[in-house]
Design a protein around this nucleic acid. Structure first.
Lengths: 146, 146
DNA sequence: ACCGTTGTAACTCTTGAAATTACAGCGCTT
DNA sequence: AAGCGCTGTAATTTCAAGAGTTACAACGGT
């Protein structure tokens, strides 16, 4: 199992918004073109980002505004906005171990902490990168192409 | 998206093998009872563990033997044996960003390293725990029940 | 009032996990 | 050598979710 591509799509969206906002109106159609997918997919992701209060979307006109300074939005914020994982658990535990078995009734207690730690390690790593980093690195890369 | 419950099932299996090996013959039926699932599910997971050279399975008689000292098998070893993630990538990247877009053709280079780092952080955390830890903690927990 | 855009519902396609049934193959045990 | 318990595995079903697509109502500048 893998984490949905919606996450990388969301990061792609933010990058496009920042790189192109002065030159184009960044619409879901425009984004769909860069990401090479369907505009509706983009709109659904934008809705999730809006619900997480990360962006504002203008109806009628179209156009996306980021609500907070880029330096205050981490990859983790985007991840949490996008991944609707139940309880936020990365690891899916088998549902109903047998309570009459000594191992079965204790297995959760044995593993939960360790799995949570592994998940947190990943999430903490995501917190290290902000959208500002992403924007700057994108601009550098594009500039160096010439 | 979540990591399959097969991973926690595999850890559950190892725990049972260690806790019960002197008292019962640990068969896929027995394990299925503790884990509360179907014996065939167990056998498939056992096959994966066998292919990864972690265990040996006796045909005819039934019974599972762990191939290495428990202290030398980490959660990560089990994870890798179980999770058939393509390329081993935790994050699924959107397939085909538009190469004609400056962002589209650079997005992989921008994100790959960061995503890999997040994945590695999680995996390194899994490497910190061995099956020996798991066994000892299980025995402690069970003993403290009485 | 028009037009470009967003918001959403409804549907399809595909994939994969999980569960289940069925049965062949293996190897002790007697 | 025959029986029995167990493993190995194929085939099938069920279910959930991601991804893509079509269609259309709602919004808001021009």
């Amino acid at each position: 199992m893998q984490i949905t591509s919606r996450f990388t799509v969301a990061l792609h969206i933010f990058t496009c918004v920042e790189v192109f906002k002065d030159d184009h109106k960044v619409t879901s159609d425009f984004l769909a073109g860069s990401i090479n997918t369907n505009p509706v997919i983009i709109r659904k992701i934008l809705t999730q980002l809006k619900n997480a209060d990360l962006i504002t979307i203008a109806r009628g006109t179209g156009g996306i505004t980021v609500n907070r300074p880029l330096s205050e939005i981490t990859f983790y914020d985007v991840y949490r906005a996008i991944e609707p994982v139940e309880n936020g658990d990365l690891f899916h535990f088998h549902e109903s171990p047998n309570p009459e078995c000594p191992v079965g009734r204790n297995i959760h207690m044995l593993l939960d902490g360790k799995l949570k730690a592994a998940q947190s390690a990943m999430e903490d790593e995501l917190k290290k990168h902000t959208l500002e980093d992403l924007k700057n690195e994108a601009l550098d890369l594009i500039a160096s192409e010439k």
